[in-house]
């Protein structure tokens, strides 16, 4: 649910990174944070446990400059990936404009990917959204690992509606901005239809 302020000519949109635990959602956000000019970003807030697992969410506000005279801001959130934090995940999806699913390419995590994707669909429905209609991109992270499942196998298992997919190595930044851009573009295109 974007927020358009005609008085101050601003538009704010919310993008949520979803996916199984330890899949690299926070790493995506950290890379975006590192590579964005200081004047275009706010603080990266991480509500994490002592062992750096996301407890509630990470949050990064990004200012992307102007489109048609409107200052365009994206608020990026991650959800906690661990299964038992489901109540928190549901809360964070409230008012979402676009979702990035960060899948873990390791063979051993394929079940976790599928479970998380099901959970995403379910929680979106609970919030009144349909993943089929929402701006969405799919990222296959950790492509540099030897145990990575082949691309086309991942695609068959996880792609649900012909959404754009990206191979990524989040700590090195490979695929990170490409994925974000793909969703941001869909979000702005959605707005243009309204």
């Amino acid at each position: 649910m974007s927020f358009i302020n005609y008085a101050s000519r601003e538009i704010n949109c919310k993008i949520v990174y979803y996916g199984p635990g330890l899949g690299g959602k926070t790493t995506n956000l950290q890379y975006v944070y590192e590579r964005t000019n200081p004047q275009n970003k706010g603080q990266l807030i991480s509500l994490a446990t002592e062992t750096d697992r996301t407890l509630f969410f990470d949050f990064l506000p990004l200012d992307l400059g102007s489109v048609r005279g409107f200052r365009t801001r994206f608020h990026l959130y991650t959800v906690p990936g661990q299964v038992f934090y489901d109540a928190s995940r549901k809360l964070i999806l409230k008012g979402v404009d676009g979702v990035i699913f960060v899948a873990d390419s390791q063979e051993a995590r394929m079940d976790a990917n599928l479970e998380s994707l099901d959970n995403l669909k379910h929680n979106l429905r609970e919030n009144g959204f349909d993943l089929g209609l929402l701006p969405y991109a799919l990222q296959f992270n950790k492509r540099d690992l030897a145990a990575a499942v082949p691309y086309d196998v991942m695609l068959r298992a996880l792609q649900i509606k012909g959404e754009p997919t990206f191979e990524a190595v989040a700590p090195k930044g490979i695929g990170v901005f490409e994925t974000l851009k793909a969703v941001a573009k869909q979000v702005l295109q959605e707005l243009s239809k309204k």
Binding site: I4, I11, R35, N37, L64, G65, V67, R68, G69, F70, T72, F177, K181, A184, K185, L188, Q189, L191, S192, K193, K194
Partner: peptide
Amino acid sequence: EAPASPFAEITDDDIDALFTE
């Protein structure tokens, strides 16, 4: 209906421009 969105005529170039560093 809300008034015409300011983004009604947004182009791919507009969006790409947002992401140039």
